[in-house]
Design a protein around this nucleic acid. Structure first.
Lengths: 341, 341
DNA sequence: CTGAAAGCGCTTACAG
DNA sequence: CTGAAAGCGCTTACAG
């Protein structure tokens, strides 16, 4: 029976009649071993049920093949979707994801980052969190590349992958303007987020270019509860908006539900609603939400590419990747003539 | 500047004027070190920015403090929710989660399990996947405890945490019967899953006890697309059901949308719909789904408890945990008189 | 309480 | 191509 009968490379070597080095080489892609040796070693290994100990290998080689992923919460469907893709893509390249949930506490993120570093990760992906410059300095001195996912930050030492949020915001404004809306509201995300700021920037730019401005503005902080509150406030005043751009889909669902089931407004007849992200739920008939697609597949591919590039070639400079996101026109907003559905 | 200036325990020892052993003890909870030594070591450590290398520690101690989590997909909100809770709970106990996405390929799960074992994880949590007995034998001989999350399996060597699915299925049937429904349909999940079988078992038991039976049955495989198809088929025949129990919420959303937006049926006026899980979306006004709550918090607590118990005390026998789930009555189904909403 | 020594399971120059 | 030896950064008996 036996608990813990770990087979070591030394045992395999003995059985195969070769040295430990030979065994190691057979299990190291690209290392030199004669077909004959390889054959003997492989046979012995399978007979014994041997598999190299990843941790031991990590210690001596200095490469753990572990990527630390920091994520704040998984409630917004955009993140589990990204996590699943990220994990699969990394798996295919021989890496695995060690997950760290960063609570909302102030120091929580710092603690969590230290823990990540303790595991000797080869790289870090930070999804929707901001990192202090001290933290980044620690990562840099530890030689661990960091890439921000769906957030950007003023720091040349780290890579960031986002959709082009400014352009996305512009598309929404153009669409709403073309639809002939008179009073356009905006429900903002968390103001500390670059995504929030950029989306609003592009949105208001286009409005300004047309001699218009936001008719009403509330903050939803990227949370459903706050978004519900924001919608109540925005639609309880005189001259309610006839269109509202919500900074992400997750909040837009709460806004639509509040408009329809609490305030008795029809969407899109009374109010047009537009979101951002195009999470799977947006396509469900109950919402059928017009939104800007953040192409998760391309964002993930870009993230994995830059990160692995920096890991495998430490010369590589950090880079910013902007991925263009299309406006997906669906039934939650009045559709201007000539705009394909 | 400098890439990779990892500080070792030896350097800290030199600076503090003590041995490497002393440094190790100061960083090992419960190890013996005089206050004076501890003080000197801690000072040196902070000055140098030293933190123990988790991987090195893992190698020698044989405890990696890494838990492998295998999960098939994160589309059904129940899983990201569980993952977030699991990860947080484990983090608090000093463990971290290494994630492995098990694709749908036949051998994928086997490959993935081998990879997990290579990382010398201290334990494995398998969410919504079945493990072959060969795989379980490998884990056993490697001394790695496994606990199944939201699935059970006939094998005494592994623990499993589920809600009481039979009881849950019974509650749904009682509720639907009390509501005076005449033709009750059932949309099944993937037939290989214990959760699917148990829910259907409890459901049909109660129906049988009342001299009734399922009026129509289709299989949705726990996927939205299949569930949509299932709903189409079930409601395109004569004598359509006036109530349908869907094996989980994720499919129930697709069913409700199909009924309402494609088939023009009203829920609950024409058809009552009941799901299972009580994922967050079920409470959204657009669905307002009656369902059986799987208490994620308690399921996670139970999972973490059993797993850590087995890790920290290898004598511990595996155990089965059933957690009772309440029926949550909401507006998607006709409410029998006397049943509190 | 403390230190010297051995060793966890591997890989990697270094010779041959 | 191959092996002997050193070493990755720690912890853990073993003496003292």
């Amino acid at each position: 029976m036996s608990v813990k009968d770990k087979v070591t490379s030394l045992e395999v070597a003995a059985r195969a009649g070769v040295s430990q080095s030979a065994v190691s080489r057979v299990f190291t892609p690209g290392a030199s071993a004669s077909p004959k040796t390889a054959e003997k070693v492989r046979r012995a290994a399978t007979e014994l049920g041997y598999r190299p100990n990843t941790l031991a290998r990590a210690m001596v080689s200095g490469k753990s093949r572990i990527i630390g992923l920091v994520v704040a919460y998984l409630e917004n469907q955009f993140y589990p979707d990204a996590l699943e893709r990220l994990s699969k893509a990394l798996q295919e390249r021989g890496y695995h994801v060690l997950i760290f949930m960063a609570g909302n506490a102030r120091d929580s993120i710092d603690t969590v980052m230290e823990e990540i570093l303790d595991y000797q990760v080869d790289g870090i992906i930070a999804a929707s969190v901001s990192l202090s410059s001290e933290l980044l300095a620690r990562c840099r001195s530890a030689g661990v590349p960091v890439v921000l996912f769906n957030r950007s930050q003023d720091d040349e030492t780290l890579s960031a992958v986002t959709s082009d949020n400014v352009a996305g915001g512009r598309k929404v404004a153009e669409f709403l303007l073309a639809g002939g809306h008179e009073r356009i509201g905006y429900i903002a995300g968390w103001e500390g987020a670059s995504t929030q700021r950029d989306r609003e920037l592009g949105f208001t730019q286009v409005l300004a270019e047309a001699g218009r401005s936001i008719h009403a503005r509330e903050v939803g902080n990227f949370h459903m509860d706050s978004a519900t509150e924001a919608a109540r406030t925005m639609f309880s005043r005189e001259e309610t908006p006839d269109a509202v751009f919500v900074a992400n889909d997750h909040m837009a669902f709460a806004v639509m539900d509040t408009l329809r089931f609490e305030l008795g407004l029809r969407v899109p007849e009374d109010v047009s609603v537009v979101g951002y992200d195009d999470v799977p739920t947006s396509a469900w008939p109950a919402y059928n939400l017009t939104t800007v697609r953040q192409p998760a597949n391309r964002m993930v591919a870009g993230t994995v590419e830059t990160l692995l590039e920096q890991i495998e070639n430490s010369q590589t400079a950090p880079c910013r990747i902007f991925i263009d996101g299309d406006l997906i026109v669906r039934g939650s907003a009045r559709i201007p003539e000539g705009w394909a559905l």
